[in-house]
């Protein structure tokens, strides 16, 4: 959420900045002008603000408070200071969950972004029919849990159609969700399948915003398609790619539903991603204080990841300027 608002705010900020630069001494006037807009702005922001306060801010603050307590949901929380956090540091399952999550994010984002970029290019250049473009989005229109269950059954070891085909080809069956090596890659693949169309659509929108004259100049200069891609498309696509990466990486870190309806964290701890671990602590073991502390740590990590991505990939600047 924060990154989205930042994205939206920035162009406006830049516009004012450049206007201020052009008018020179008019800088102060524009500040008072902006202050004059504040009242009316508050009116427009208020409804969203209300939702933000009730559904994000207050629960977040309460979550942070609970992370310093021992709280079993039935009964009152008791303040225990930093104990949850010190326990987390020596909690092997937490570190395992982080490693598993990072592995998932790497596989998920890596494949998803590359495939989505390819699809977006195809949509941009080749597949102009709305039907085909729409079809790419279909997996995203199916609910997460349904997608997970669908693949869960198709990839079942004994009765799944995929393993029937594999064994028909004379290859050994694969325990997609059951083996430690395959569980995370399989879950990552299922989510790539679901999200690639949507991600492609976002990138496709970015591609459309690249002015065609840049391409014309490139072709006049005799640049090869590969060269055009790396020297024009990619640099000009960067702000959109950064936004897409920030949003998908955050979403990817929060993977839960697919794991919850398929492996449930197993085999052993091979797919116990951080959200699954938080859920297990809170709702299975009724340890809400500890789960809150885990959530706070995840929150901090995600904020850092978003910050680093924005900072180093310069997501708020465009080479078009």
């Amino acid at each position: 959420m924060t990154t989205l608002t930042k994205q939206q705010r920035d162009p406006a900020g830049r516009a004012t900045r450049s206007r201020a630069g052009k008018t020179g001494s008019g800088g102060r006037k524009s500040i008072t002008h902006r202050m004059g807009d504040l009242k009316i702005a508050m009116v427009f922001i208020f409804p969203a603000m209300l939702g933000f306060v009730f559904f994000f801010l207050i629960p977040t603050i309460r979550g942070v408070y609970l992370s310093f307590t021992e709280y079993s949901i039935l009964g009152d929380p008791t303040w225990i200071g930093l104990k949850n956090y010190t326990t987390i540091f020596s909690d092997e399952l937490f570190w395992n969950a982080m490693a598993v999550t990072v592995q998932y994010v790497g596989l998920n984002i890596g494949f998803q972004t590359v495939i989505a970029l390819g699809l977006a290019l195809l949509m941009h250049r080749v597949a102009k029919s709305t039907f085909i473009r729409g079809a790419l989005l279909l997996p995203f229109l199916v609910a997460n849990v349904i997608v997970a269950l669908l693949w869960f059954w198709m990839l079942d070891y004994q009765l799944g159609i995929v393993n029937e085909v594999i064994s028909w080809l004379g290859l050994p069956r694969i325990a997609f969700f059951g083996s430690e090596q395959w569980a995370i890659p399989t879950i990552a693949f299922v989510n790539v399948w679901r999200h690639m169309g949507y991600t492609a659509l976002l990138i496709f929108a970015g591609l459309q915003s690249i002015p065609s004259h840049v391409y014309e100049v490139a072709s006049l200069d005799g640049a090869s398609p590969t060269r055009t891609f790396w020297s024009i498309t990619m640099p000009l696509l960067r702000p959109v790619m950064v936004l897409v990466l920030v949003v998908t990486v955050i979403g990817s870190f929060q993977v839960f539903d697919t794991v919850a309806v398929t492996t449930g964290g197993g085999p052993i701890n091979a797919s116990r991603v951080i959200q699954m671990y938080i859920y297990q602590k809170a709702f299975t073991e009724s340890d809400f204080g500890y789960a809150s502390a885990l959530s706070v740590i995840l929150f901090v990590i995600l904020a850092l990841v978003a910050f680093v991505q924005m900072k180093f990939l310069k997501g708020n600047e465009s080479d078009l300027d």
Binding site: W153, Y157, Q158, L159, R173, A175, F177, G178, G266, P267
Partner: peptide
């Protein structure tokens, strides 16, 4: 007996029903 990794998915009774 099946390996543990193969039990994630179809229920043990359904595998019995399928003659496995």
């Amino acid at each position: 007996m099946p390996k543990l990794e193969t039990t994630v998915g179809a229920s043990v009774s359904d595998n019995f029903g399928a003659g496995k």
